[in-house]
């Protein structure tokens, strides 16, 4: 097992830890804005994972350089194009979530989740 393969699994582990930390923050926090930030952490982990699958050893940026026609010289453009749309949708998700938070604050006058659940049961 060479060093590069070992480090590639270290990278997978770190991305999994990032995802799980977002997961934990989303369950653990009571404040809804903090839950939203933890959700952004999870989305970043997913995007990093997809980009890592598209990368090769020595892959340069997928902009065609005249003279280089080898396929293995470029990084894979397909995951990058998919993740580009994912990031932009991420932004509109954040906007809608903040809108919902403002509406919740106006209606319940609090952002504490357990407090909202307690008042809902009444």
């Amino acid at each position: 097992m060479s060093v590069a393969i070992f480090f590639s699994y270290v990278i997978f582990w770190l991305i999994a830890l990032l995802y799980v930390s977002g997961f934990f923050g989303m369950m653990e926090h009571n404040h809804l804005v903090k839950k939203l930030m933890a959700m952004n952490l999870m989305q970043t982990a997913v995007i990093l994972f997809f980009l890592l699958l598209g990368q090769k050893i020595g892959g340069i940026t997928p902009i065609a350089v005249p003279g280089i026609t080898d396929i293995d010289a470029y990084a894979n453009p397909l995951p990058q194009a998919l993740m580009l749309t994912a990031i932009v949708v991420n932004l509109s998700t954040t906007g809608i979530a903040l809108t919902f938070l403002i509406v919740i604050k106006k209606f319940w006058n609090t952002l504490d989740e357990s407090e909202i659940m307690r008042r809902m049961d009444k």
Partner: peptide, 29 residues
């Protein structure tokens, strides 16, 4: 570092807008 300059550009520009959203929504909240 993952050789995705398009995605990096988008993330760099969108994080600015995202922080603006957070700040203005937290002021409202």
């Amino acid at each position: 570092l993952l050789s995705a300059p398009d995605v990096a550009f988008t993330e760099a520009v969108i994080s600015v807008i995202s922080i603006a959203y957070y700040v203005i929504a937290i002021r409202e909240l």
